[in-house]
Simulated scan of single mutants.
Amino acid sequence: MIYIIKKPTDTPDDNSTGMVVSALDKRNAPWKYLDLDKINPFNPGIEDELIWVCGIRQDGVHFEALSVLGLSNAVVNSPESIATCASKVQTTARLIKAGVPTPETIFTNSQEHVETFLEKHGKVVYKPVYGFDGNGIYPMTNISELGESPYYIQEFIKNNCDYRVFVIEGEAVGAIRRSSDTFAHNIHQGGLGEAVAEIPDNMAEISSRAANAVNIDYCGVDLLPWEDSYLVLEVNGTPNWHCMSAPIPEYIAGYLVEKEKSLKA
C-alpha cells in the first residue's frame, strides 16, 4: 500500500496529488490517503509502509507527525530532506559544502553585516528563511529596505529568466524556463513557464549535484543562468511541475511503485 499525504495547496485546476493518483490508478497500484491532522503519530496503525508526501503545511504539527511516522515507515521525501529544503539556510549550507555553485549569501542578525554585504555588491536580494512560491523575496539597494531579522541575503544576479529542473533519483527528467517583466519569475508570482525540450548537460549535471547535496529522492531545483553555466538558488522538496512537457506524474508514480515493491521484497 502507498499512503499519500495531499499537497495542502492543491486546487481543482492545479491538483498535483490528483495527477499522481491518476497515474497510480493506471498501474493498478493500491493507495490510500493519509491525513496528518487526523492521526495519532504515536499509534498510526501503519508500519513498514511507503508514505508519499506530495506536500505539507510548514508548521510544527505536520513536520513532527511526519518525522514520527518516518521512524517506522519509508517516507518520500524524507522528513529530514523536506526540512532541509524548507530552510534556505540549511539548503545553502549543504550546497556550499558539496561545492555546488550558488550566489554568495550571508545569514545574520546583524544589520551592520548586511550593510557591509550591500556595499560590496551594490544590489542584493532579501529572502525569508522559510517561504514558498516566491513570497517575501525582493531586491534591495539600501539598508532602509531591510525586512525583519534574521537576515538571509544573497547577491543579486542580473537575469531575465530562471529555470526549474525536476530531478528523480539524481536524474534530471524535466525542466521549464520561467520569465516575467518583474523581478520574480516564479509561476505563482505571475511568471510564464516554457518547457525546455532538451535539458543541457551542464544544467542536468548541476541539478543532480544539488539534489544529492540535500540527500533527497526527488525535487525541483531552481537555477539562474550564470556565465556559461548556472547557479543553484534553492531546492524544493515538495515541488510542482507546471509547464513541463515531461510526464512527471507518471515518473513519480513509477518511482513510488518500485520503491513500495522494494520494501516488500
Score class of each variant (00 low, 15 high):
I4Y: 05
T9A: 06
D10C: 12
T11V: 05
P12A: 10
D13R: 13
T17V: 06
G18S: 14
G18Q: 10
A23L: 14
D25V: 03
N28G: 09
W31I: 10
L34I: 09
D37C: 03
K38Q: 15
K38T: 12
I39K: 09
P41N: 10
P41H: 13
F42S: 10
G45V: 01
I51R: 08
C54P: 07
G55K: 00
I56M: 01
G60D: 06
H62V: 04
E64M: 13
A65V: 12
L69W: 01
L71H: 13
A74F: 13
S78V: 02
E80F: 08
S81T: 09
A83G: 11
T84D: 06
C85A: 08
V89K: 01
Q90S: 09
A93I: 02
A98L: 09
G99Q: 04
V100H: 13
T102F: 05
T105K: 10
F107K: 02
V114T: 02
T116M: 13
F117K: 07
G122Q: 12
K123I: 05
K123H: 05
Y130D: 01
F132C: 01
D133C: 12
D133L: 14
G134I: 02
G134L: 02
Y151T: 06
Y152K: 10
Y152V: 08
Q154K: 14
I157W: 09
I157H: 14
K158H: 14
N160L: 14
F166T: 03
G170F: 11
G170V: 09
V173G: 00
G174H: 03
G174V: 03
I176K: 07
Q189N: 07
G190D: 08
L192M: 14
L192N: 15
E194H: 11
I199E: 01
M203G: 01
I206H: 06
S208A: 01
R209A: 08
R209C: 10
N212P: 10
N215H: 15
I216Q: 12
D217A: 13
D217S: 14
E227G: 07
E227W: 11
V232H: 02
N236L: 00
W241T: 05
M244H: 00
P247K: 10
I248R: 00
I248F: 11
Y251L: 12
A253H: 15
K259C: 13
E260I: 08
L263M: 06
A265G: 12
